[in-house]
Design a protein around this nucleic acid. Structure first.
Lengths: 217, 217
DNA sequence: CATCATAAGATAGTCGAACTATCCTATTGG
DNA sequence: CCAATAGGATAGTTCGACTATCTTATGATG
């Protein structure tokens, strides 16, 4: 198909498509002659992936590029898909953070929950992050950590089950990334809810009667 | 103190301070004469708060403004601080999202965990978010939800304890906002770790030996 | 065979967010 | 008294992500 039709199918403006082509985010179509090129379903799927990662997950084009590049050549092989999942996690969750310290608490958690992890990027990211939190004066107790671990187990299972069913790589990535993102938001909101509840328990009604803020009638 | 010294103390460039003054994010100092103004500790704390919310939590200036405005006049009163906390949550967690549907699952969670919540913004945010997730094909089971709830309870307790000790409003806000943010990151990373572990359990070693991605030697 | 709409490709312009640099004026310490 | 500086206002910069325009070359039509 032509650029105009690709634009139709994917819901992306021709200008944006040209932009993605220029920056190499979208591979060029098959050039028929100097002024005509042919695009296929792969281009449509790729554009939908880009759009989803940008709008729903809120990634920047550089992050999208990293994921898209990692997806090259990965089709149905399970092991390749798992490697791809690791990349998606790394990008979406920014696992490759900068920290010189690391805490052993993450390793302890892995032991406590009998996870068969053997030194993954995620594990060192957890250890580094715990060190950062300690440094920021936001310590995390073992009990809290274990509560997280159990919740994480439940999420992970649901996530893996959901991603397992997808057939195209693009669907696979989108399901994984969007799932991560939505679960993330959900947890935050539940924590807010828990905080509101605990505030009530400790101090009575949360929103003060004398508050100047937006009131709930 | 003068603008130059305020810049020193707060670690903010004079140009940025002027910018914040212009946009009303920072209240003007006490004008001594048309060409001289006096700034105090409040200005320094305010600037540190702005900086922390921007750099650590990653908020935009509009969000910072909302929080800063909500903090006006709130000093030590417990009930006012709780109202402020609700605002901080609302901004940091984007609780005021747009969704026309709502799920009753959040209410069920509140019941299951015996939380004394009575229709807070957080609760409706959770209900709306669950509806969004359902719509996106990312369903959340009651078991997962309950695991979240228990983790959230632990976080909320730690958070409230941490914020309780602060004396200046700015510290209070920063502790709350940074705490939320760091806990959030932590959970995500732990989920990534759990996913890696479960992948290994299901399919053997996560990173495939034949993967073309970045290998761990 | 001429031609005119259209596509592909390249170049430059736009937009918002968050600053940053410059200019002008008034004052003030030496 | 007068150059150095503070404050305030205005305009310019940077970055990311496009968007609009301009150019050239077909290719279908008459």
């Amino acid at each position: 198909m032509r650029l105009a039709q690709l634009s139709e199918e994917s819901g992306t403006s021709p200008a944006s498509i040209k932009f993605y082509l220029r920056t190499g985010l979208l591979q060029p179509g098959v050039a028929i002659n100097p002024t005509r090129a042919d695009y296929g379903d792969g281009h449509v799927r790729r554009l939908r992936l880009i759009h989803g990662l940008r709008s729903t997950v809120g990634l920047g084009l550089e992050d999208v590029r990293r994921i898209v590049e990692a997806s090259a050549g990965v089709e149905t092989s399970r092991s390749r898909r798992l490697a791809l999942l690791a990349t998606v996690q790394s990008v979406v969750l920014r696992l490759d953070g900068d920290a010189d310290a690391a805490s052993p608490a993450g390793d302890a958690l892995v032991q406590a929950l009998a996870w068969p992890d053997e030194g993954s990027e995620a594990r060192s990211a957890v250890n580094r992050h715990l060190a950062v939190m300690d440094a920021a004066g936001v310590g995390v107790g073992a009990d809290v950590l274990e509560a997280y671990g159990r919740a994480a187990d439940a999420i992970a299972a649901a996530q893996l089950a959901a991603t397992d069913l997808r057939d195209t790589v693009e669907d696979f990535i989108l399901t994984a990334a969007i799932g991560m993102h939505l679960h993330n938001q959900l947890i935050l909101k539940i924590v807010a809810l828990a905080q509101a509840s605990q505030s009530i328990r400790r101090y009575g009604t949360g929103t003060a009667p004398d508050a100047t803020g937006p009131g709930r009638p």
